[in-house]
Design a protein around this nucleic acid. Structure first.
Lengths: 153, 153
DNA sequence: TATTGTTATACTCTATAACTATA
DNA sequence: TATAGTTATAGAGTATAACAATA
C-alpha cells in the first residue's frame, strides 16, 4: 500500500551524460513512449496504430502510402499496421474507384469511437507522465520542442 | 550547392498528433539520436559506447554490471559493447584481485583521448541540432526535461 | 515505365535463459 | 546458494528488394 500514489519516473542518468541534452531527451522520450504504450494496451494498440487512426479521423479517407508519408511509417510496415487495425475492425480497405492501385482507408464506426477513447487515454497518460511540470511549464516545453521542426512544407 | 548551409530538421508531425507532447518529444529525440550517431560514426561508436566510455572516465574502474546499472544496459548487451571497445583498444578488462568474478574495466590512453574527442563532437552535434534555440532556451529545455527524473537515489 | 500494395528477407536492438567460474 | 560474465537464442522493430496488379 505504501507505493499507491507513487508514479514511476525515469531514473537519473549517470553524471557525465546527464549534462547532454540529447541523452536526457532520449531518456525522457523513452519514458513517455512507455507510458503511451501502456495507456493504449487495453485496446491492443501501439502508438503507431494510434497515429494512423488519429490521422484518418482528421484527414478523411487516405491511401496507405499517404498516411505513411505523413507519419513516417514505410509502406511495408504500413501493411502490417493496417492488417492489425482491420483485424480489430477499426478501419476498412476500400479500393479507390479512380485508381485501383490505391485503397481509400476509412474508419469504421468502432474505429471512430476508438479514436475518441484512446485520445482521452493518451492525454491522461501524458498529463501523468509530465505531472512534475505545471501547466505553464508543459506548454513551454511543447513550444520549445515544436520550434525544432522544419517550417512546414 | 544550393543546400550547403541547410541543416536537416525533423519534418513536422501531422496535425492531430502534433498536439501530443509525447509524440513531439519522441520525434525530436529520434532526430537528436540520429545526429549523435552521425557524430560518433568516425570513431566507429554508437551512443551506448560513448556512454560507457564517459562513465568510465568520470567514475574510474568499474565492473561491467556496475556500468550497466548506471546506464541501463543489461549485462548481456554490456558484453558486446565492451567487446567492441576492447577490439578498438579503448578499454581493458582486468580481473579484480579481490573478487575474480568481476572485471575492473579501465580506460586505455587511447580511450581517454577518444572520450575527450567524442565529447567535443557530441556537444557540437547537440548544438547544431538545437541551433534554432537560443542558449537560454536550450538551458530552459534541459532544465524542464531534467525535472522529470526521479529524485536521485 | 512507374507506382501501390504485398511478401520475403535481413539486420539491429533488446531480452531471456542456460552455462562457467568464482564466491 | 548466489553472482559476474558469457553464449545462444528469440522477439520486437525497421529497412530492402522482388513481385503482382494497375496506371
Amino acid at each position: 500500500m505504501e507505493n499507491l500514489e507513487r508514479i514511476e519516473r525515469p531514473t537519473p542518468l549517470p553524471e557525465p551524460v546527464a549534462r547532454h541534452t540529447g541523452f536526457v531527451l532520449y531518456k525522457v522520450a523513452q519514458f513517455l513512449q512507455e507510458a503511451l504504450d501502456r495507456a493504449l494496451e487495453p485496446w491492443g494498440l501501439k502508438t503507431r496504430h494510434y497515429t494512423v487512426l488519429a490521422v484518418l479521423a482528421n484527414r478523411g479517407p487516405l491511401s496507405q502510402q499517404a498516411i505513411g508519408q505523413k507519419a513516417r511509417i514505410d509502406r511495408a510496415t504500413m501493411v502490417k499496421v493496417v492488417d492489425d487495425l482491420e483485424r480489430l475492425g477499426l478501419v476498412e480497405r476500400r479500393r479507390n474507384a479512380a485508381d485501383r492501385r490505391l485503397y481509400d482507408l476509412t474508419l469504421t464506426d468502432a474505429g471512430g469511437e476508438t479514436v475518441a477513447a484512446t485520445e482521452a487515454a493518451v492525454l491522461r497518460a501524458e498529463a501523468d507522465a509530465l505531472s512534475p511540470l505545471s501547466e505553464e511549464q508543459r506548454a513551454r516545453l511543447h513550444e520549445l520542442l515544436a520550434s525544432l521542426f522544419a517550417p512546414g512544407p
